[in-house]
Design a protein around this nucleic acid. Structure first.
Lengths: 166, 166
DNA sequence: CCGCGATATTTCAAGCTCAAACCTTTTTGG
DNA sequence: CCAAAAAGGTTTGAGCTTGAAATATCGCGG
């Protein structure tokens, strides 16, 4: 009896798709490997961001989003882009603002909303971090040739698109 | 000028490997897609675990590890298997123990260590959750045929092995 | 111009996460 | 035998994360 993964074989009621256990297990195994890979890479990135820049992944993600949208982003747009809860972003922006890396700018016509923008200091700091980050990632994924990376990227794009579009 | 991703082009000092920017960017793009995919899947799993079982991913992961090692695991082994900090596991086990899903068993010859084991209730509960979990994952990755899943799994295994081994 | 649903954001409680500090017990080297 | 190092766990402090509730503002229909 092949016992692998989170193996258990209780009588699970089959879903509407009526798929084979082996197919499920093949995909489950893929999932566990993807998880292992991404967690491993994330752990390294988190550690380096911490030790070399005194920062964190969430902070980096936020700054990356703001760098990509130079005109600024509303809090809700930010949480939308990053796909995290809006309550979450509040705290991260609070701390980035304390460090003088971002500012909240009042939106003229709307006293509810505010636009978040990188400060000059924030832009410079992000440029430094992003440069290092790119090299770190490329090193960590060095096993993938650029061609394979591109091919896999396209494949994931297909899959992701199917989710987004429905 | 192709501006994509966390784009910035500050003069980053080239590492010892002296690699091309385009290669870095191709891998960075792959990384962002992997992240997007895994986060998306994780979000769905977390939500279903919460709404359908009143549980969380970390709890599920711990129970899966314990199910795989029926004889029990020491706290340190558990954090080693899950690749999370040992201080982290303490809290999760505390809460699982409160719910009667796991127990801490004293190790005979060593008064420091304790073996964590699923209770009968924990085994049954995990069996239920794992069955659902497997189907959820398979559905979420349904875009990958079993063959492609197997191929990708092998590819990730190679990459992961290279990291573990050195 | 007033109420009321929609929108933008913050606050809150609970849980996860890490690194570092801290006990306790065990093992090891003199 | 005994001090010092190593091993097993917990505690602590700060930050991240979510979902839900609270707050404030906007805009629309009447």
């Amino acid at each position: 009896m092949p016992v692998r993964e989170a193996g258990q074989d209780s009588a699970t009621e089959r879903g509407p798709t009526e798929r084979g256990d082996d197919e499920d297990r093949a995909r489950l195994r893929l999932w566990l490997r993807m998880l292992k890979s991404t967690r491993g890479v994330e752990a390294v990135l988190r550690d380096r961001l911490r030790t070399q820049f005194g920062s964190t992944l969430p902070r980096f993600d936020v700054m990356a989003a703001l760098a990509r949208h130079g005109t600024g982003l509303k809090m809700s747009a930010l949480s939308g882009v990053l796909k995290v809860s809006n309550g979450n972003v509040t705290g991260i922006i609070d701390r980035l603002a304390e460090d003088g890396l971002v500012v909240r700018v009042q939106v003229p016509g709307d006293r509810r909303a505010s636009l978040v923008r990188l400060t000059r200091k924030g832009q410079e700091e992000f440029a430094r971090q992003a440069g290092a980050h790119r090299v770190w990632v490329s090193d960590l994924l060095a096993d993938f040739s650029p061609e394979e990376a591109r091919a896999l990227t396209d494949r994931f794009d297909e899959v992701n698109a199917r989710k987004d579009g429905s």
